[in-house]
Structures are given as structure tokens and as C-alpha cells.
């Protein structure tokens, strides 16, 4: 065997090695794509079934799995974080058109510190524009969450809480509505189908004229759908239970005593007897039902903790 033949064999082997390396890399990429597509399938199933757990799982991987697929956009689950943000801004603007913000900077800072603490342990801690919480100057016992992470707590609800644990779990409940995308689920599919069709028709960076008018009309419809659901009709019972479950888990992971949610629901139960069914009472299932389910969840998942006196003391100072 000549030197040239030996060299040739080395070269051939080296090329084979390189090709195998490339193919393996491509194969891994292919596997990753298939895994991502499976993620989308799980997410779609979750939306259909309305399962809190499956939706939660889907929310965990939504950002990666969703965009790794070549599926066409069909419903609210396909909205991008940026679109969710602009929808959330408009919903928030409508809420601030109805309710006046309370001018209380210290309480606002306190609410935002609690909000960010619990949001960071949720299944969707990063939103396009971040999390923002504001106190509304209203005696109603109520709270709202607009898509994208805009949360509103009324003074009435704030004053109904007795501890930071209670307040934190109420805010975590609203965070749950956002991460489980309950607001977006109120949008009629036909509106989004129309919007997606308009967005897909024009290969330019910005819309103008008739297309902008049509897209704005579809956008206005989506905002009306969400406002109707949030403020007038209320979320479904299953959505409220799912947000309660998410709240208990979030609060536990953040270091709070998740029993704060059960304590607050007991307060609601007492108030609901006397209340005139406005606000929080008209837009949620009965507190007794929620309390029962939360108590069972805390026991099943062994979610417990202690209510630290330092937290209760600083809560009392802000009231």
C-alpha cells in the first residue's frame, strides 16, 4: 500500500466523520423540532380540554414550542407576547376609563413588590412589558387582570385583606388568570380569524388605510369580548378554580403561606352573606365552593407554610 493510498483513506475517513457529525447534528435538530411540535399538540389539547394542569404545562413551554411549529394561526393561543401586550394595554385603558387610580404611592410600591415576587414563581413569569399593579379608588371588593400582566386591585378588596399572605394570594390569583390566558380565551375565534387573515395579506411593515381600519375593528372587538367577560359576565367557574389552584402554588413557591387564600375566601364567605352581589361577588363562583376546593388542594399537594409576623406587621403599616 502506497503512502498516497494511506493518505487517501485518512481523507475519506475524515470526510465520513465530518458528514456523520453534520448528520447527527441535523438529526438532533430534527428531533428537537419534533419535540417542539409535540409541545404544540399538547398545548392545543390543553386548550380544548380546558384542563388547568395541561394549560399550565402548555404555558411553561409556549414561547418555544409555539413558534417552533409551522402551524397557521387560528386562535388566542397563537397570539404573540407583543400582541398580548397591546391587547392588555387596551383592556387596561378601558378599566382605567371606568375606575380612578388611588393616589397612594407607598401602597402602590408595596403592591408591585408583592406582585413581582409572586409573578416570578408563576408558570409565565416573563411578559412582553412586565408586570404592573395599581390600586383603584373604589369601595367594591374586586380585582382584575388584563392580558400581558396589568393587574388592578380595588381599595375595597385591599381593606378586606387582613394579612400580607391574603393580599399576596389574591394578587397571585390574578397572575394566574394572566398566565393561564383566561382573558384572551374570551375573544371570539371569528374575530381572531379575521385579524389573522388581514395580518397575513399584506407583506409590509405597517398597515395603512382600509387594512388598518379593518384590523382596528377586529382589535376593538377583541377588547370588547375581554371586557364583557372580565367586568360583566365573569370568568367561568372552572377558570376561577384554576386561578385559585395556580395562586396557591405560586404563593407557596414564593415563600408565602398559601393558606392565606383560604383565609381570604372565608372573609369573602362572610361578606357575601351581607353583600349586594356587586364586584368580586358577582363575577366569581360562591366563596364556599372555592374555599372547599382550595382546602382540598392544599391538603392534596401538601402546600403549607407559616404567616411571618414581619410580613403582617408591614402590611398593617400600609393600611
Amino acid at each position: 500500500m502506497s503512502g498516497g493510498q494511506v493518505g487517501g483513506r485518512y481523507l475519506a475517513a475524515a470526510l465520513a466523520l465530518a458528514v456523520v457529525a453534520g448528520c447527527t447534528a441535523a438529526g438532533l435538530k430534527d428531533t428537537a423540532n419534533k419535540t417542539a411540535q409535540a409541545g404544540v399538540a399538547i398545548k392545543d389539547k390543553a386548550v380544548v380540554q380546558g384542563s388547568a394542569l395541561a394549560t399550565d404545562t402548555a404555558a411553561h413551554g409556549k414561547a418555544v414550542a409555539k413558534t417552533a411549529s409551522k402551524a397557521m394561526r387560528k386562535g388566542f393561543a397563537d397570539l404573540t407576547p407583543q400582541e398580548e401586550y397591546f391587547i392588555g394595554r387596551a383592556v387596561a385603558a378601558r378599566i382605567l376609563g371606568i375606575y380612578r387610580p388611588a393616589e397612594n404611592p407607598a401602597t402602590t410600591r408595596y403592591l408591585n413588590a408583592i406582585g413581582l415576587t409572586v409573578a416570578q414563581t408563576s408558570s409565565g413569569p416573563e411578559t412582553f412589558g412586565g408586570w404592573h399593579i395599581i390600586l383603584l379608588d373604589s369601595d367594591e371588593v374586586n380585582a382584575f387582570a388584563a392580558p400581558g400582566g396589568f393587574i388592578f386591585v380595588t381599595r375595597g378588596l385591599y381593606q378586606s385583606c387582613r394579612t400580607e399572605e391574603q393580599l399576596a394570594t389574591v394578587i397571585a390569583h390574578e397572575v394566574g388568570h394572566v398566565t393561564l390566558r383566561h382573558g384572551l380565551s374570551a375573544i371570539k375565534t371569528s374575530r381572531l380569524t379575521e385579524a389573522f387573515a388581514i395580518i397575513g395579506t399584506e407583506a409590509v411593515k405597517e398597515f395603512t388605510g382600509a387594512n388598518l381600519a379593518k384590523l382596528t375593528e377586529a382589535f376593538a372587538g377583541t377588547i370588547d369580548d375581554i371586557i364583557d367577560q372580565m367586568v360583566s359576565l365573569g370568568y367561568s367557574r372552572s377558570q376561577e378554580y384554576a386561578a385559585d389552584a395556580e395562586a396557591a402554588r405560586i404563593a407557596y413557591r414564593a415563600g408565602y403561606n398559601p393558606a392565606g387564600l383560604a383565609e381570604f375566601l372565608r372573609t369573602l364567605q362572610e361578606k357575601s352573606v351581607k353583600a349586594d352581589k356587586k364586584g368580586f361577588f358577582s363575577s366569581h363562583p360562591p366563596a364556599a365552593d372555592r374555599l372547599e376546593k382550595v382546602a382540598a388542594l392544599l391538603a392534596d399537594e401538601k402546600l403549607s407554610g407559616t404567616t411571618d409576623p414581619a410580613r403582617t406587621a408591614r402590611f398593617s403599616k400600609t393600611r
Binding site: K66, T67, A68, S69, K70, A71, M72, R73, D78, L79, T80, Q82, E83, F86, I87, R89, A90, A195, F196, I199, G200, E202, V204, K205, E206, F207, L212, A213, L215, T216, F219, A220, T222, I223
Partner: peptide, 21 residues
């Protein structure tokens, strides 16, 4: 247009739609 294509697109529900709204 696929989900991939719009993930970062600067069109869709954006500031221009918000201004009109």
C-alpha cells in the same frame, strides 16, 4: 402567515392599531 413569521413581525396588533383604537 405562520406563527414563526409573526413572532417578531412589527405588524399585527401594535402601536398603530392602538392609536386608531
Amino acid at each position: 402567515v405562520s406563527q414563526d413569521d409573526v413572532a417578531f413581525a412589527s405588524k399585527g396588533f401594535d402601536s398603530s392599531v392602538e392609536r386608531e383604537y
